[in-house]
Simulated scan of single mutants.
Amino acid sequence: MLYETLRRVGSVVGRALYRPRIEGLEHIPDTGPVILASNHLSFCDSVVIPLAVRRRVRFLAKAEYFEGTGLRGRLSEATFASLGAVPVRRGTGREALDALDLGLRVLKDGEVFAIYPEGTRSRDGRLYRGRTGVAHLALTSGAPVVPVALAGTREIQPIGARLPRVRPITIRFGAPLDFSTGYGHLKPGRARRVITDEVMAAIHALSGQEQAGEYNNHGGGDA
Rank of each mutant, 00 (worst) to 15 (best):
A61Q: 12
R74V: 00
G70C: 09
L71P: 01
G133C: 02
I159N: 11
T196M: 06
S11Q: 13
G70T: 03
A114K: 00
K187M: 02
R15C: 12
A151C: 04
V48L: 13
E210Q: 12
R172C: 01
G219V: 10
P188A: 09
S38M: 00
R193V: 05
G220R: 11
V13T: 08
V194F: 07
R58V: 00
Y65N: 11
Y65F: 11
D30Y: 06
H27S: 04
D222P: 08
P168Y: 12
T31Q: 15
R131Y: 12
P176Y: 09
G152V: 08
K108H: 14
V146Q: 00
P20T: 01
A161T: 00
A175F: 02
V148L: 09
E64V: 04
I171T: 02
R56M: 13
K187G: 05
A191N: 00
R129D: 14
A61D: 10
R21N: 05
L137Y: 04
L100K: 06
R167A: 03
M200A: 03
R105S: 15
N217Q: 09
E210G: 05
N39L: 05
G142I: 01
P164M: 00
D124I: 11
D124G: 12
L6F: 15
R192K: 15
L206G: 06
I28N: 08
V134I: 13
D109Y: 06
K108L: 11
A138P: 01
D222G: 12
D45S: 09
D30N: 14
A37H: 00
G160A: 14
I169Q: 03
